[in-house]
Design a binder for these strands. Sequence first.
DNA 1: CAAGACATGTAAGAAGTTACATGATTGG
DNA 2: CCAATCATGTAACTTCTTACATGTCTTG
Lengths: 178, 178
Amino acid sequence: MSLRHAVLGLLAEMDGSSGYDLMRMFEVSLANVWGATQSQLYGELAKLTADGFIEVVEEGPRGRKAYGVTAAGREELRRWLTETAPKAVRRDEVLLRVFFLGLVTPEQREEYLRGRAAELAERQAGIEAVEEAVSWGEDDLSRYGRLVMEYGKRFMAMRREWMEWALRELEDPPTSAR
Amino acid sequence: MSLRHAVLGLLAEMDGSSGYDLMRMFEVSLANVWGATQSQLYGELAKLTADGFIEVVEEGPRGRKAYGVTAAGREELRRWLTETAPKAVRRDEVLLRVFFLGLVTPEQREEYLRGRAAELAERQAGIEAVEEAVSWGEDDLSRYGRLVMEYGKRFMAMRREWMEWALRELEDPPTSAR
DNA sequence: CAAGACATGTAAGAAGTTACATGATTGG
DNA sequence: CCAATCATGTAACTTCTTACATGTCTTG
């Protein structure tokens, strides 16, 4: 139930946001760590309201609802952060496919890895664009967002290096039984 | 629908496996790239059979069913590998929480990062145990499994380094506005 | 003969995806 | 005035998780 806490956390740091505001936040800053669709977000806002963790603090034009975290919501967030352990979900379709690369031709293997490397380069460019666009302040979200951003950079660099290594490995296999 | 293809791929490389066999395979070799529960696996086997992608090739003791991939299954696998693009799911609860580290005390922040680092060390030990236990041959699964294993090692090393960096960063913040 | 491994399944519910559906406000 | 952006929601479907349920074979 992490989407719930992602919403709660975001709202705790940006009180008075609307679903639409949060959606953009998910797109730019949270995209790399926890994705959410618009549909999911609005649904979760409704559930959080029903559960008393957030409330509508203001209604604006176009039906805009600004939400705020309640005391119960803050407590829930604290509980989540300090009393529950994150579970590592290990699901990576890119790597899953590497497992089965023996089922295609050598050309397709190489094409695959090169394609993924290209995607990575795109994402790297994307993260750098965000880094420049965002005005990094001294608020908590900026402070910890920077840590996450640095992680993203290291992650992508690591993957790229691995892909280059894997390509070399395919070219020149280290056979013990040549 | 990647679980489907994970099962199909595994079965393509290990024809005649049972649900139980595949389950263990998921636990040891696929655990880091695509997790699956027992329940999901048996369900998927039933669906794959209904769709004609796999078939029961033999029935053994204790109700054991050995499956084999059909021609249609092989074609589906090939199609998936060569004609569809993997989608990068970006969901990492460990990093999500880093985003909200401003909501807890400095002690809790440090405790959090140290705790994750400890978990990582455990996983690293686990992967090394698997590496030693598995008899790496020259078959495809071994060949490409080794690539994935190397990725896992690099991934964990990267995370560990990042955590150490983040801990230093928290201790001694790089404030532009001191 | 008992414990442990082998072996398969079902059911209920939570979470996530995709597509549809609608309408208001604002800036050029 | 029209296009873009703001803004919220619903419905159908798929996928994933957790828990329950049952029974067989092998080995010491």
